[in-house]
């Protein structure tokens, strides 16, 4: 009997290919199908070189051979995921949605991992969401009175592909939804800058809140706790501006350097969402294997 849980990845762009590399390194996961549309893409040839089974049929291969895998990563687009979700649900797959479709349980592993793996469709929100929500959550734990949180992420221009660029509004809407949900605030604002500087800059995210009497000490304790938890699966996640208070405004900044698997190190934004998704998949796999 195999001691690993089988994983399918739909979507063979940068996200899908990087996920594949992380899956193949995992003790609990193995990729049994890597499916997209274009066998000539560079992600496909990377996967072929790794000896992974390929398909150009997208989701249809899993419909035809449902026993191929238990977990499905959907790394296509929000629009495609809306069509995929019900199909995968009928097939009884555990789905980890990498798109901003936001129809499943929104998940930030350090906050609601258990809830997420109890569901059948987990949404990874956005890259900026994975970087900022844990910090925002840590602050809101100390100051439950907060009613407004904002985040601003700056990413390297080169780490945003055509899909992200054309759908920049989707990114904002999904990140804001995540902030409101996890921090219990009624208003949230997410902003994103694409920076063309060369050499490419690492992704960074700042969280800002309005506060009257901030408990800086406890905020720092909570944030540092959170940062070290996240560093377990994203080693390049670092607090670079400690909570700083000025004129009623508290600000703190994290920087995310990626692992440099398929994606370059500066694309920490893409790496963190993939690392978080792997965390969810591994936890699901671990539980499932323990039951057997």
């Amino acid at each position: 009997m195999s001691s690993k849980i089988r994983v399918g990845i739909i979507g063979t762009g940068n996200i899908g290919t990087d996920l594949l590399m992380k899956v193949q390194r995992s003790k609990f996961l193995e990729c049994t199908i890597f499916s997209g549309r274009n066998l000539a893409s560079s992600g496909m040839s990377k996967a072929a070189a790794m000896g992974v089974r390929l398909s150009d049929e997208g989701i249809d291969i899993i419909v035809r051979e449902p026993d191929l895998c238990d977990i499905v990563f959907d790394a296509t687009s929000a629009k495609s995921h809306l069509a995929h979700a019900s199909i995968l649900e009928q097939l009884g797959k555990f789905v980890i949605d990498m798109t901003p479709a936001k129809i499943g349980v929104l998940c930030v592993p350090e906050v609601n991992l258990e809830e997420a793996i109890g569901s059948r469709n987990v949404n990874m929100i956005t890259c900026g969401g994975q970087a900022s929500i844990p910090i925002a959550y840590a602050i809101s734990k100390v100051h439950s009175e907060i009613d407004y949180i904002e985040t601003v992420s700056t990413i390297s221009s080169r780490s945003a592909g055509p899909g992200t660029r054309i759908n920049i509004d989707e990114y904002i809407e999904a990140t804001e939804k995540g902030l409101k949900l996890f921090c219990g605030v009624s208003h949230a604002k997410a902003m994103i800058n694409l920076n063309p500087a060369n050499p490419a800059i690492d992704m960074q995210t700042t969280v800002l809140v309005e506060l009257k009497n901030p408990d800086i000490e406890n905020i720092l304790v909570e944030i540092e706790k959170m940062v070290s938890k996240i560093q377990r699966y994203v080693p390049g996640y670092k607090l670079i501006v400690k909570p700083t208070f000025d004129n009623g405004k508290l600000l703190t900044t994290v920087r995310v350097q990626g692992l440099g698997d398929y994606l370059p190190k500066f694309a920490g934004n893409l790496d963190i969402i993939n690392c978080a998704a792997i965390e969810v998949a591994e936890h699901f796999a671990h539980k499932k294997l323990a039951k057997v």
Partner: peptide
């Protein structure tokens, strides 16, 4: 119909 991306 043939359902396929023309490239593959």
């Amino acid at each position: 119909f043939i359902k396929s991306d023309i490239r593959s």
